[in-house]
Computed example of a mutant assay.
Amino acid sequence: MSLNPITVLYKEVNGSKISTDIYLPATASSEKKLFPVIINIHGGAFMLGHSRMVSMPQITDCLERGWIVLVPNHRLCPGVNLLEGPMRDIRDLLAWVHDGHLDAVLQEQGPYGADLDNIAAFGTSSGGHLAMSLGWNTPKPPKAILSLYGAVHFTHPFWRKQLPHVQAKLPPNLDSSFLNKIYNEVPVPTDSSVSLEGQSESGGSKGPDFSRSRDAFAFTQIASGNVLSAIYPDSETKDPTFNSVDPLQNVTSEFPPIYIVHGQADTMVPIDLSRELFAKLKKEGVKCGMTEVPDEEHTFANMMKVGSRTWWLQREGFDFLEGIVGKGPQ
């Protein structure tokens, strides 16, 4: 098992070079074996973050279960919209795996093969949404999905609500021309200096740097209740029901098994949104489960301590995945 990933490009579009980190579990075998593949998608309100801004204890847990872990980047909004950018990229990553490109990389890494019949996906916040988005309009959806406080139910009034506790973090009188510099970034970036979880590009949890237009833009949209307009302008005209991008609108009896983990004290994506998703999943007869984590805010995955109550509760989601994709070969 190594926490030093292999990084490869899985896609290039309009100058954006989009990579994924590949983490490999330990193996004592010298013969090729097939390992389940788990896609782990970072959070950041679709506008922030990159592949190194994920919970390393969660990755370690996955590796100890014998899973190959892919942690992809994706293009960041608003230079591209949610459907054509992040969702398209993550769907293309899944296709990249199924088309044999992951196996081509693994051939150089010893006795590892990708078990294409046992692929799962999970993510936090916007990453939870992107994991869920693999459940529809994909030729071969994952066998199971885990959403940790994923963004969902976009027609709910919450998504247009101002958030004073976020507004309080912003410096006064941010200039619109400074904020809108984000639209001139060419090519569209696939990483940013900070994630919504609080990790910085140099490690640690330094928080946003409001001298950077991307950090300032993203937090301004969150504070003012304008995230959806910023990341998916079609919601204002062509797709006001969010039919193309909202997991809640796309749950049918054919949806993959899914587990939800959500903090009860979440002020960024209220737990009631996940509760409504869970209710619809059950109504449609989808194999599903949900763990509510007491006292936890939106970004707890980055801050939880291994062995804490929160650690064991969120781990129920990974146990659910394991019950479907199994453990990797020992």
Rank of each mutant, 00 (worst) to 15 (best):
V8A: 14
G44W: 07
R309W: 00
N302F: 13
K287C: 08
A28K: 15
Y112G: 05
L83I: 07
L281H: 02
I68G: 01
S253D: 12
D175C: 05
L70P: 05
L83N: 12
L102V: 13
N250E: 11
S213M: 11
E284K: 15
Q58I: 15
S224M: 13
L83W: 09
A301N: 09
K140F: 08
V8T: 15
C288L: 04
V166C: 02
R91H: 05
P86S: 11
L277H: 10
V166Q: 09
S244N: 14
L83P: 00
P86L: 09
M290K: 03
S202T: 11
Q249A: 15
H42S: 07
I41D: 07
N73Y: 06
V105E: 14
W136P: 04
E316Y: 03
M303G: 03
V194N: 13
F219G: 03
L83R: 11
A218N: 10
W67V: 09
A223E: 08
I39S: 02
G207P: 08
L179N: 10
A230I: 05
T60W: 00
I182K: 07
D103R: 10
T27Y: 07
K161P: 00
H98D: 10
N226I: 01
A121H: 08
G113T: 09
T155K: 15
I59Y: 04
E64D: 15
S30C: 00
P139L: 09
G49V: 08
G127E: 04
P294T: 06
M268P: 00
L94H: 09
L76T: 08
N173C: 06
P5T: 00
E197D: 14
P72F: 14
W67G: 07
P72W: 13
G289F: 12
T241C: 01
Y183E: 03
G328H: 06
S195N: 03
V37C: 03
